[in-house]
């Protein structure tokens, strides 16, 4: 997640160069980050005071602009996280499949049986094979063109660890995603509040001058 924060910082820096007058720094509208460095939108308690806390006081356009920028950054983060999540969701059933298979082999071994299988030889060609389960050995595909030999127990342990790690990852990314959604909604609400605040202020000054 570090790259997200740094990309925001970079975007912020370039914004500063383009518009030196509009110097609302990102730091002014965020309120720290969560444990994986996703910034947290600052909630505006009192818009009058918030605008006045800048020197000169921030115009509604400036505030809305700043929050819109932040909003689109969060949208980006949201998309990245959604992709990450979809990837994790896909990997868990794969691991579960492998676990099922190893369990099946273990069961066959206990029964002193051999497993008769049709395995995928090529795209749509299946070949028949008899697996001697008494050896208790299975090969696991570890990725990066590596396949290692494991005993059933070791394989099961490795796969279970992988499964719980994947589930933990999924939980983390889900948490990040709902955190990000919170920030997006806070941005949206802030923008509309600043807008309404401006309308009311203009109305008040119009009726004041009448």
């Amino acid at each position: 997640m570090a790259e997200i924060t740094s990309s925001i910082a970079a975007a912020e820096a370039s914004n500063d160069n383009e518009a030196p007058v509009a110097n609302i720094s990102l730091q002014n509208i965020i309120d720290g980050t969560n444990e994986r460095s996703i910034p947290k939108t600052k909630f505006i308690d009192d818009i009058d005071m918030f605008s006045g806390s800048f020197d000169p006081p921030a115009s509604p356009e400036l505030l809305i602009g700043a929050y819109s920028d932040l909003h689109s950054k969060f949208k980006q983060i949201e998309q990245q996280l959604t992709e990450k999540k979809a990837h994790r969701e896909k990997s868990i059933p794969e691991i579960e499949k492998s676990i099922k298979l190893v369990r099946h082999l273990m069961q066959k071994k206990e029964e002193g049986d051999s497993a008769i299988t049709r395995y995928n030889l090529a795209d749509i060609v299946y070949a028949k094979a008899e697996v001697d389960c008494s050896q208790g050995i299975v090969n696991l595909w570890l990725g990066a063109d590596v396949m290692l030999e494991y005993t059933y127990e070791e394989a099961l342990e490795l796969l279970t660890t992988k499964e719980s790690k994947a589930k933990q990852d999924l939980e983390d990314v889900t948490e990040d995603l709902s955190f990000t959604r919170n920030q997006i909604i806070t941005c949206e609400v802030n923008i509309s509040r600043v807008y309404n605040w401006d309308v009311r202020r203009k109305r008040a000054s119009a009726s004041g001058s009448n």
Binding site: K97, K100, L101, A115, I116, Y119, N120, Y126
Partner: peptide, 11 residues
């Protein structure tokens, strides 16, 4: 029967 388990079929 054939049981489909993790990409292979088992009798």
């Amino acid at each position: 029967v054939m049981l489909s388990l993790g990409g292979a079929m088992f009798e």
